[in-house]
Design a protein around this nucleic acid. Structure first.
Length: 265
DNA sequence: ATGGCCAATATGATTGGA
């Protein structure tokens, strides 16, 4: 079974690329971020025609997450617990019935947090604390669990082409990386790092300053696997070539292959 | 050469992204 995550930077602007990539990669489950689209306007039909169930949680203009699944949704729960007043559409948990039992996953879009000296960074850190709390509770279920999405965290110096350029950025500050480590150390496996030696691979290249042409990339889109999901990990990778397509997102798809059968859909 | 982009909005300038 193949599970992927992709920050598409507007679902409406990226439908052609999304369909092309799905056709090429045939993922069973896709977590999307930055759909930038209210649920009523989400382009469900072309995706349903490709055989996916669609669960979207969006808002006007910014943020927005979704999950596409060839398998049935048993539960779909928007919003990260822990702060009722947080109205950003950045998180959706889904429980999915696969041929090999139940799989719980979250499609998440962690706050950017820049500039660091503002309440935006405080919001990022508070959001990470809430994510840690959520993850701790879910790990206690001892089930296959996957946290997938745009974490807006560069975990280590191996995850940026030029780490020096990111030293004072909210994506790479020591406090940010410390929180990410605290999350991972609950028992998650960073699937791409487990499968690929660094430095790289990267998942984001800025539109500006010829970042793609110079390979000035960073790795900020991650798939974190619970021990029970890690037991099934076969392969992981990044579809870098998608960044070279016409009208690309600034992020590319990241995927894992799990040894769960997809028998009954 | 240290700057260069892209998407959404009651839009022609601003905000957010990273």
């Amino acid at each position: 079974m193949r599970i992927a995550t992709w920050n598409v930077n507007s679902i409406k602007q990226r439908m052609d690329q999304l369909v092309a990539w799905i056709t090429e990669r045939s993922p069973d489950i896709v977590c999307l971020q930055e759909t930038k689209c209210v649920d009523e306007a989400f382009p469900r039909e072309p995706l349903e025609s490709l055989g996916y169930n669609v669960a979207a949680h969006g808002q006007k203009a910014f943020n927005g997450v979704a999950v596409l699944s060839k398998f049935r949704f048993d539960e779909v729960t928007p919003r990260l617990p822990g702060e009722e007043s947080d109205d950003h559409a950045r998180f959706m948990e889904a429980v999915i019935s696969t041929g090999s039992g139940s799989l719980r996953l979250a499609s998440l879009y962690l706050p950017n947090g820049n500039p660091p000296a503002t309440d935006k960074y405080a919001y990022k850190i508070a959001w990470m604390d809430r994510l840690i709390q959520y993850a701790q509770e879910r790990l206690s279920l001892e089930e296959p669990l996957i946290l997938a999405g745009d974490f807006n965290v560069i975990p280590t110096t191996a995850d940026a082409r030029n780490p020096d350029r990111w030293t004072s950025d909210a994506l790479f500050l020591p406090r940010t990386r410390e929180k990410f480590r605290a999350l991972c150390n609950l028992g998650f496996t960073d699937a791409v790092r487990a499968a690929c030696e660094g430095p790289g691979p990267f998942t984001f290249w800025d539109y500006q300053a010829g970042a793609w042409q110079k390979n000035e990339g960073i790795r900020i889109d991650h798939l974190l696997l619970s021990p029970q999901a890690t037991d099934q990990l076969i392969a992981a990778g990044v579809d870098k070539h998608v960044r070279s397509w016409e009208k690309p997102s600034d992020h590319v798809p990241v995927w894992i292959e799990l040894g769960l059968s997809g028998a009954s859909r």
